[in-house]
């Protein structure tokens, strides 16, 4: 029996009420997604004559096939690939530069170390949303509009990950570095052979969080990808709505919405432990 098997709550009506409340909560959270899924499996005529059915229809393959292969402005398969490249690029890029600089800050005494530390500390404060116009100009100046580097680079320019790794490196016993030094190991050997393997879990947890962060970006891709072939899926959905009075192609749009959710949701569920750890760590 677990520690929670205390004497406080017996299995009275309160216990069943708790279950009922939670089930209601889960239903509330699920309902919008369920509806989107149903809409992605029925035909357009079933949707435009409300009320739409609340149980899946038999147009699933047709709708998803149409979305993936042609979409509205660009094939959704292409947008999925763009999103994947962006999300993985942001996650790996940020982890790589942060690991290196955290290693330098913690294990070396070099001129400008304090200054560097405070510079990156400042970046914790400013989300990309606040500096969009000038950042856009920088990207345009480099000719990086409609490019993967334009999508990725501005979003790895912050120091949250550096702080995380710094905190972690501080907890690594000094004896390890000392032993490495006595053995005549070069700093990079120590970094690669000892520090990196020890940071595995932290790196993985951070990867999960950064992947979701990158995948779900909206404003930035909206600004710099004017070419539909470079759209990411999360920002591409809105572009699928017609501008005038035409009726939106709801089944295809909803299929796209579901496709936009699947990768990050799989990551969260599949790596729940790492995900929770990453959330808690990155908010410390």
């Amino acid at each position: 029996m677990s520690r929670r098997d205390g004497m406080v709550e017996r299995r009275g009506w309160g216990y069943w009420l708790s279950h009922a409340g939670l089930i209601l909560g889960v239903a509330f959270v699920f309902f919008p997604i369920w509806l989107a899924f149903v809409a992605s499996t029925v035909s357009q005529t079933e949707i435009v004559r409300p009320p739409m059915p609340l149980w899946p229809g038999d147009h699933l393959l047709e709708n998803y096939g149409k979305a993936l292969a042609s979409g509205v402005n660009a094939p959704v398969a292409l947008m999925l690939m763009n999103s994947a490249i962006m999300a993985i690029g942001i996650a790996l890029g940020k982890i790589a530069i942060s690991l290196l600089s955290a290693f330098a800050i913690v294990y070396f005494r070099f001129p400008g170390r304090k200054l560097f530390f405070w510079l990156i500390f400042l970046t914790l404060m400013l989300p990309v949303e606040v500096r969009i116009v000038p950042t856009y100009e920088v990207i345009a100046g480099f000719g990086m509009l409609n490019s993967y580097s334009g999508l990725i680079l501005p979003l790895i320019a912050s120091a949250t990950a550096t702080f995380l790794f710094r905190q972690f490196f501080m907890t690594v016993p000094d004896e390890l570095a000392e032993a490495a030094r006595v053995d005549g190991a070069r700093p990079m050997r120590f970094f690669l052979d000892i520090l990196m393997p020890m940071s595995r879990t932290n790196i993985a947890a951070l990867f999960v969080i950064l992947f979701i962060y990158g995948w779900n970006q909206y404003l930035w891709p909206l600004l710099i990808t004017t070419d539909p072939a470079m759209n990411t899926i999360v920002m591409g959905i809105k572009q699928m709505f017609p501008s005038g009075d035409d009726i939106a192609d709801w089944p295809v749009i909803m299929a796209t919405s579901i496709l936009a959710m699947v990768p990050p949701v799989l990551v969260v569920i599949g790596m729940q432990r790492l995900f929770i750890r990453g959330l808690v760590e990155s908010e410390k």
Binding site: V29, I33, I212, W215, N216, Q217, Y218, V234, M235, I237, K238, S257, A260, M261, P264, V265, V267, V268, I269, Q272, F275, I276
Partner: peptide
């Protein structure tokens, strides 16, 4: 917890 993964835009 998994709706955390749903983007605000979605």
């Amino acid at each position: 917890i998994w709706p955390y993964a749903v983007a605000p835009a979605v």
